[in-house]
Design a binder for these strands. Structure first.
Lengths: 193, 193
DNA sequence: TTCATTACTTAACTTAAGTGAACCAGATAC
DNA sequence: GTATCTGGTTCACTTAAGTTAAGTAATGAA
């Protein structure tokens, strides 16, 4: 599990054994049970998450309905909005599967980053990369129909369609569960003809 | 114009006069005429933009049609995907109005950041903030209907609706220009009744 | 001035998503 | 065993967006 982390970090910066040991001494790794709610609406949190194994999900409750907007799986990093702005959270984060997460505290991160400027540089590279990647995702969403979005997801994250309930997938695609069912039936019908 | 920049930077870090002078010596400020294309699809670029005055726009050409996905106005920063990943650009960037932009080269940025670690920290803070903000925008888009999106835009960026052509606004909202016209007529009708 | 182009609107028709209800497993509780 | 709950599909109906085409107003070029 630690090697997964170090391999990931190695894509950005190189760590000495000492630096690795500092990281390991921090007690960052946490197993989390399916269904656990990591963050609730209205809470202030200082925690960031990095998924080593499993899947976590961001959702809103709007008009009494759950609206899922994001899934984070292996090697995905999430710093909630409320951590960055120090405001109460607008959304919930819950655990879709039994998972192993790296959970870091913002205060801790500040301390580490000031001791090891390398980490700050890595954080900058990572945020810039995520910002650009998310931009592309957003653009694809905007310029696609629900059906295209589904087909696109089938290409890019086929695992999600298996491991996540349909009604959560539907709102992730910006539609209702009934529409997702219908849309899938339509695609199968097309493939036949 | 320079003060606009320094006031912006002051929200993140404090600069000495020397540091300010280094920035000013770099010839970053550029007036850009309306209609200028700053980046074309397929190009590799190393340039980031910061809008001091005016408006620039990101758009794709998909199935022969322009699809506008973003507008950057006063105090917005944009580092294109192709700069981060050093790949050919998927999209175009053009200038909606006569504008004054701060244009910085990635190589130059790397040099400055290594000389002044402060800048690196500011870049990290800025990317994290933008990442979280964009996440919220994306979430709002996903969980709203076109009509709600339009009303939301009317609240948050009323200026955009005035300064940008309708057909560009439409694709920004994820719909066709005809639908935007209809949707606006519908809203006016509702307000009356 | 005239002609062409462009941006925007309107309308009729098509297609697909939203809505509400019924239905059908599969899982859990009693 | 039956009852219940949940997640998913299907159906009939409504609503809104896509499509195609036409019309209007403003802009710019010949």
């Amino acid at each position: 599990m630690q090697n997964i982390l170090f391999d990931f970090i190695a894509k950005y910066i190189s760590l000495t054994e000492d630096e690795k040991n500092v990281l390991l001494s921090l007690d960052l790794f946490h197993p989390v049970k399916k269904g656990t709610i990591l963050l609730k609406k209205g809470q202030k949190s200082r925690e960031s998450y990095f998924v080593l194994k499993g899947c976590i999900r961001v959702y809103y409750i709007k008009d009494g309905e759950e609206k899922t907007t994001a899934f984070y799986t292996e090697l995905d990093a999430l710093t909630p909005h409320c951590v960055v702005n120090n405001t109460p959270s607008d959304y919930f984060i819950s655990c879709v599967e039994d998972s192993i997460l790296l959970i870091s505290n913002a205060d801790m991160t500040v301390e580490i980053n000031s001791k090891f400027p390398k980490f700050d540089i890595m954080c900058r590279m990572l945020s810039e990369e995520l910002l650009a990647k998310q931009r592309i995702d957003f653009d694809e969403f905007k310029t696609s129909s629900p059906e295209q979005r589904y087909l696109n997801l089938l290409q890019k994250r086929p695992d999600l369609i298996q491991r996540v309930p349909q009604h959560q997938l539907a709102s992730y695609l910006g539609i209702k569960p009934q529409s997702l069912s219908r849309l899938r039936a339509r695609i199968i019908e097309k493939d036949k003809g």
